[in-house]
Write a protein that binds this DNA or RNA. Sequence first.
DNA 1: GCCTAGGTCCCGTGA
DNA 2: TCACGGGGCCTAGGC
Lengths: 307, 307
Amino acid sequence: MRLVIARCSVDYIGRLRAHLPLATRLLLVKADGSVLVHSDGGSYKPLNWMSPPATLRIIEPAPEDAELGVMQTWNVQHAKSDDRLVISIHELMHESSHDLGVDPGLVKDGVEADLQRLLAEQITLLGDGYSLIRREYMTAIGPVDILARDGHGRTVAIELKRRGDIDGVEQLTRYLELLNRDPLMAPVKGVYAAQQIKPQARVLAQDRGIDCLTLDYDAMRGVDDVDSRCAGSTTSIRASSDVTPGRGTVVPVQRHIESADDRNRWGGGVCPGTTGAGQDHCRRRRPRLRERPDYVRRSCWGIPACV
Amino acid sequence: MRLVIARCSVDYIGRLRAHLPLATRLLLVKADGSVLVHSDGGSYKPLNWMSPPATLRIIEPAPEDAELGVMQTWNVQHAKSDDRLVISIHELMHESSHDLGVDPGLVKDGVEADLQRLLAEQITLLGDGYSLIRREYMTAIGPVDILARDGHGRTVAIELKRRGDIDGVEQLTRYLELLNRDPLMAPVKGVYAAQQIKPQARVLAQDRGIDCLTLDYDAMRGVDDVDSRCAGSTTSIRASSDVTPGRGTVVPVQRHIESADDRNRWGGGVCPGTTGAGQDHCRRRRPRLRERPDYVRRSCWGIPACV
DNA sequence: GCCTAGGTCCCGTGA
DNA sequence: TCACGGGGCCTAGGC
């Protein structure tokens, strides 16, 4: 890794064009040829950059550029596209190189997949008597996150998001329209479950007869094993109690959290979990439309319930 | 800006939890207190980070951490949330500080707004006899990107994207359903225009009777004034001809590009451009749903044309 | 290789 | 302040 502090101007040309006027910035050159141009503010996104794989060529500036004060021209060319970054260096303030080696990588906990696993395990959060049918229930237009059965034996389709936006409601609407065509399955109820549900999404969901469920991930994971999934740390974070468990309000529809003992009582015949049914369909994505012209021609994706 | 190369482990706790095992990395501390943890690969996204505004406190490691080789503990606390980053430093390889000043910022060309302006100016790309009604035509559920009239006097709603995904089709569908309720306006045709249209989106659009139009931004901007919008550069990119004008194929529906002379011949009564009609409604976004409960209760957002 | 969907998305803009 | 929508999004995963 090479670190350079320099007064420079930068031009990017590729998917769009972008220009940075002359100023002092950090130029970060990585081992894979990628280059990041950072200022002393903003956030983690550089002002300008080149993605790997790329090649950096440092050349003498053109005479007219040299006259304007350019002492060095960096030409960063992407290896697989026509994207190019040109850095005109007027003054070098600092330069150093460092050998970092290969990084072991990041361990995450709390993404949508974790949320889905937990909700499948704690399906009674939706109400007493609920049971899991399966996760990632495959349909012609893509997988339903969770398919369940309520206390009255009715099928329930659950769309899960970390942040509940309007497009998630559209997605669930399409699934419901499709599932409700199956006489053996209909009527299928819809539940939109997310850690946070945006007002627009909530209104649209309610308008379509879809229930909303706000999830508290920390509570679902259980306060007892807060540190258990961030293992391997030389220094673990101990004081988890000073971290606010959940931002945002919990809506009335949210039920209590079942105790750990309850997790093994299942109302339905299918048992969830990492080794249970439904795993064979996990990680499957919505099939491409061009592979199913027959389905597309036969129908449209409509709205099931116009109130 | 402070640059540190160090052997360290990192823990993030906040919206989710993430852990980085012990390795050598770059720690970048910005003036606003934000911290970026970079490895020597990947892309511009750091392995771990803290967004501004944040405060970095460097403290003595806890005795048990010191025993494991931690010489310094960095506690990076976000100012407005409970997000926290804890960096355990085992070895310092490099450290330097630099005064960068405030950055003048980035100038962009080629984003969706530019595309919309160009298509409004070159509305005959949609077909002979087309004329612009207005850009950002406001409706109760949000602005239609471009409203036009075809050669037969029929209204055409155009949804514009840089990348044509499936959600853009959903958006246009909602607009069409609403506009077609107006007897004075119906029937309104839909056109989905984008630099690249995904197969799924194309199939769904065609299924709903929406035309697709692939746009060539470079051709629309005109090859003559390629460098004109990246002005102010000390070093401008001259050899624009070696940049491939358009990645991706152009579909048959795309028409020829009008010559520059044609831009002043307008079939309709409204003249587009930066000072023309429609500007007063530009930059308006979809109104929030909770502010319009009457509309929501009266109807649903359906699909106008089920083939 | 393309394509889809999630993200500690970030970030501008407008209400 | 919050919420919505774009992005050179990036990135992981399936096909």
